[in-house]
Design a protein around this nucleic acid. Structure first.
Length: 633
RNA sequence: GCUCAUGUAGCUCAGUCGGUAGAGCACCUCCUUGGUAAGGAGGAGGUCACCGGUUCAAAUCCGGUCAUGAGCUCCA
């Protein structure tokens, strides 16, 4: 019986009889066989030593593919669990999957793993790699598996088995003395794992539920070569350097003070200037697109929050009310009720729609203490909020405009890579099915019209409407939400919003709730990390530092500084009696884009020596030439 | 909120076995006036996060609180 194997490029390989996937790979190239971590046969993943006994389509995965990495990391997590069990036999194993970068394994143990223990686990892993133990797959019935893990005392595994349907075939993998319940596939043997590092240990709830026991998790990463591992570790180091909390300290941008309160941001002059520039640009662009700016209070009466429904569904994130003359007032967690109240203050005709009300609205939300993180997660923040009130007919056009507007604005700040998510109707929701369909369709339509790639989060929408989220990635590869475009089927009814239609009858408008930057605080943090603190010229609090070489040039330097200021450039002068090298060093460390260095020669000839941050000396030139160069940025 | 770790000068960090506080940078004063990433000398600066306990004696040991960090959980 001959076997036909079809490869991804359409080519076919014929073999006289049953053959292992490994041998097929070897037939293609010995290097592929060596590098292959698993085989995908007719769309299903198998161990590389699986025997092929019928015609199949085969794809071989190496570490370079996402699937390859997953298998590689998953096998490493088993290797780690084996080492842990050998060193600490009383520890119970739970689960240990691959993640976006690396893997983890959760153990039930009373104490946390110390750094020293991580090192000894690593050393044990090295021994097991040297032993080159094969990962052996065995299939058995659920009952057999239950008996096996019960005998081993691995109660968590038994719990996992309990939710698997009775008839299913269970697979276990064994390498050396270590057995784990696992779907697979795995590497052929531990010897394939060339370079690894255990990164950190922390707590994690069993099955991610905080009602359950806190387990001890170890995170790790592995690569087929030391070179790749070291590159990754270097990347982590570099990422640390760009952390917005560190850069903000160096550049004196903001602080969060224990006495003021956690999650509450103090914007220092440098940070405040950048924020001002961001906000000024934001306002200008919104006005240009037909938005109307509004301002609303920071607190509102309980009635308002009853009407909006926030006291019903958002109370956990709101702060306790304050009593004003016997009435409860709440500090706002959102701006919507105010914006909609502005709409309701007047009667509106269909001719006026869409109405777009925009505000940089500062809101306060309760966040659990453990989740606060620099500017990324705070308790008081400013949303670049707007509500678009439109007729159903205007929906498509408005959504399309919004997406273009958002992407343009984000790219103006230098961001290039986005991840877009569409979230659809959750189980519990308000609004008519028909409206949901229509709104969801218009979101899809708007993205398809621009050929945007997006992931769909089925059932991930808010209960009051579907949404589009645009996220940008920070230095550590984490995604942060910026733009959010959300339909609201809830508030128009709650606030009894209407407009007078062409038929002279009242109609219910659609409301789109949207933020482009999301939170100014978070956006600012992401902006800092993305640019490593080297902001584009237009966002720098100080754009030019004028540096006299000796005190004799202070007068001339003053003159240059004044002229730059008059041109609208944010210039400063460093008059201290320090050496020029010292003043340059400081300006470089403060990441100021340009320096105007003036000594005796420049003063005599009415020139300046221009120096650019990270680039270096640009040479001596006339003042006008220098201004020309500054304006190029 | 949970697990673990951490909290010493404005910043980065030392501080041994429990014996009364240290460095570098920054800051102030003086000297130096220089040509593209740190010139020199001197000075000031601390309720060792906070509260309590043990002790003749606590930055150090113990307990609690607060905050920060890495995760978990949750979200802009």
């Amino acid at each position: 019986m001959s076997i036909k194997v079809t490869l991804p490029d359409g080519s076919e390989k014929h073999f006289p009889g049953s053959i292992s996937a490994y041998d097929v790979a070897k037939d293609i190239s010995p290097r592929l066989a060596d590098a292959a971590v698993c085989a995908e046969l007719d769309g299903k993943l198998y161990d590389i030593n699986t025997i092929i006994d019928h015609d199949v389509k085969a794809v071989f995965h190496t570490f370079s593919s996402a699937i390859g990495k997953e298998v590689y990391w998953h096998s490493t997590s088993h290797l780690m669990a084996q080492a842990v069990k050998q060193l600490f036999p009383d520890v119970l194993v739970t689960i240990g999957p691959a993640i976006d970068s690396g893997f983890y394994y959760d153990f039930d143990r009373d104490t946390n793993f110390t750094d020293e223990e991580l090192v000894s686990i690593e050393n044990k892993m090295k021994e097991l790699v040297k032993a080159d133990l094969p990962y052996l797959r065995t299939e058995l019935s659920k009952q057999e598996a239950s008996d096996l893990f019960a005998k081993m005392g691995e109660t968590y595994k038994a719990e996992l088995l309990a939710v698997i349907p009775d008839g299913d075939i269970i697979s276990i993998y064994q390498q050396g003395d270590f057995v784990d319940l696992c779907r697979g596939p795995h590497l052929p043997s531990t010897g394939k794992i060339k370079a690894f590092k255990l990164l950190k240990s922390s707590g994690a709830y069993w099955r991610g539920d905080e009602k359950n026991k806190m387990l001890k998790r170890i995170y790790g990463i592995s690569y087929p070569s030391n070179k790749e591992l070291n590159e990754y570790l270097l990347f982590l180091e570099e990422a640390k350097k760009r952390d917005h909390r560190k850069i903000a300290k160096d550049l004196d941008l903001f602080s969060i003070n224990d006495e003021v309160g956690p999650g509450l941001v103090l914007w220092h002059p440098n940070g405040a200037m950048i924020r001002h520039l961001v906000e000024a640009y934001w306002k200008e662009e919104h006005i240009r697109k037909g938005y109307k700016l509004v301002y609303t209070p920071h607190v509102g009466r309980a009635n308002l929050w009853e009407t909006s429904g926030h006291l019903g569904f958002y109370k956990d994130s709101m702060y306790a009310p304050m009593d004003i003359e016997g009435q409860d007032y709440y500090i706002k967690p959102m701006n919507c009720p105010f914006h909609l109240s502005i709409y309701n203050a007047n009667l509106h005709s269909y001719r006026e729609l869409p109405i777009k009300l925009a505000e940089l609205g500062t809101v306060y939300r309760y966040e659990r203490s453990g989740v606060l993180h620099g500017l990324m997660r705070v308790r008081g923040f400013t949303q670049d909020d707007a509500h678009i009130i439109c007729t159903p007919d205007q929906l498509n056009e408005e959504v399309e405009k919004l997406i273009t507007f958002s992407l343009n604005m984000l790219s103006h700040f230098g961001f290039e890579k986005f991840k877009i998510y569409l979230s659809t109707k959750p189980e519990k929701s308000v609004g008519e099915e028909e409206d949901w369909d229509k709104a969801t369709a218009s979101l899809r339509l708007a993205m398809d019209a621009q050929n945007l790639e997006y992931d769909v989060d089925y059932g991930g929408g808010a209960f009051y409407g579907p949404k589009i989220d645009i996220k940008i990635k920070d230095a550590l590869g984490r995604e942060w939400q910026c733009t959010t475009i959300q339909f609201d089927f809830n508030l128009p009814t709650r606030f009894d919003m209407t407009y007078v239609g062409a038929d002279n009858a009242p109609h219910r408008p659609y409301v789109i709730h949207r933020a482009v930057l999301g939170s100014i605080e978070r956006f600012f943090g992401t902006l800092i990390e993305y640019h490593s603190g080297n902001l584009p010229m237009w966002l720098c609090p100080t754009q030019i530092m004028v540096l006299p070489i000796t005190d004799a040039q202070i007068e001339y330097a003053n003159e240059i500084n004044e002229r730059l200021l008059l041109l609208g450039l944010r210039s400063e002068i460093d008059k201290r009696s320090e050496k020029i090298g010292y003043k340059i060093r400081e300006a470089e460390l403060k990441k100021i884009p340009f320096m105007c260095i003036v000594g005796k020669k420049e003063a005599e000839n009415g020139q300046v020596a221009l120096r650019q941050h990270t680039v270096g000396d640009l040479g001596v030139m006339s003042f006008d030439e220098a201004v020309l160069k500054l304006n190029e940025e």
